[in-house]
């Protein structure tokens, strides 16, 4: 292509055949260096430090730190909370995006804004809200206590706080895509005789499956890593209500750095695995993902 266009213009002396759509070489190199330096300093270095610190005292102590009963309990709790919060938000996010993108109803913009609330509110407040509602001094506290139900300083509270904080992830992925796709596919399916349910499962859902998966992955990453809100409602009972991020904090505060970084490295590893899954899926299904964006 480019050899068809004479680039040998008078003012383009110096670097020959300079592309007209890019900056000069020194500018490009400078920009690339800035970007790489930034990534290294703020992302790669900390990640590297976590793993380095974790194994600094040797693999033996690393192993004993992560096989300790409290650590294992924290892992189990973290996985369990994610296993409840993620499906809950998958269903909620799908339902909300479906409603917002495909239907007109009063209060639609309010709902759309409400979905973002957990992003804009500090996680500590998200936690405090549940204490206020379900804690001993809270609105429903006395009632719950008299019926032997404990929410705050117990697993249900942790699950609730996590659901609240990870609320927007799926919906935020789906709403723009569903809005862009419009309603014509659904109208076509209906006119072809499909019921509402069949239309949803055979047309709407497959059209957004990749965005949905992406939302779920992000939601899961956040559910496992959430600290602030969970910290408020957990009560920090070792071996019972400590999730992995909380366990890391406790160990760190006890100057048990090796153990703290060991658990932290596991958490970081979970995050990395999540990202690897995402990249692998994107790589494996490039064509389908591209096709689902537009025809």
């Amino acid at each position: 292509m480019s050899d068809a266009i004479p680039l040998d213009l008078d003012f383009a002396t110096g670097d020959r055949a300079r592309s007209v759509t890019t900056e000069r070489r020194p500018v490009r190199i400078a920009l690339i260096l800035i970007a790489v330096a930034f990534l290294t300093l703020f992302l790669l270095l900390p990640l590297f430090a976590v793993f380095l610190e974790a194994v600094r005292a040797g693999f033996g102590s690393y192993w004993s730190a992560i096989s300790e009963p409290d650590a294992i309990a924290a892992m189990k709790l973290t996985l369990m909370v994610a296993a409840i919060a993620v499906p809950a938000n998958l269903i909620f996010g799908l339902a909300a995006s479906w409603a917002i993108a495909k239907f007109e109803f009063p209060g639609k913009s309010v709902l759309n804004t409400l979905i973002d609330l957990p992003f804009s509110v500090s996680p500590v407040i998200s936690g405090l809200v549940y204490v206020l509602l379900f804690g001993l001094q809270g609105y429903f506290g006395p009632y719950l206590q008299s019926h032997g139900i404990q929410i705050i300083f117990a697993v249900p509270g942790i699950v609730l706080a996590t659901i609240f904080v990870t609320f927007p992830f799926v919906a935020r992925e789906l709403v723009p895509l569903m809005q862009e796709q419009g309603t014509q596919d659904e109208e076509a399916a209906l006119s072809l005789g499909a019921s509402g349910l069949k239309t949803f499962f055979l047309v709407t859902l497959p059209n957004v499956k990749w965005a949905l998966l992406y939302g779920v992955i992000l939601c899961n990453a956040r559910a496992m890593g959430e600290f602030g809100a969970v910290s408020v409602v957990s009560g920090h009972i070792r071996g019972k209500t400590n999730t992995m991020p909380l366990q890391v904090e406790i160990l760190y505060n006890e100057y048990n750095f090796a153990a703290a970084f060991a658990v932290a490295s596991l958490l970081a590893l979970l995050a990395l695995v999540t990202l690897v899954i995402k990249v692998a899926l994107e790589w494996r299904f490039t064509d389908q993902i591209a096709a689902s964006r537009r025809h």
Binding site: Q184, D185, E187, A188, A189, S191, L192, G193, A194, S195, K198, L202, V203, P206, N207, K209, Q288, A291, S292, H295
Partner: peptide, 25 residues
């Protein structure tokens, strides 16, 4: 039978699956 300007074909289905959709559902 509805035909749209933007075709509204089901992008995750083959041509044959698209045509058979109305009978399939």
């Amino acid at each position: 039978g509805l035909v749209f300007q933007s075709y509204a074909l089901f992008r995750h289905m083959t041509v044959l699956e698209n045509i058979g959709f109305g009978l399939h559902v």
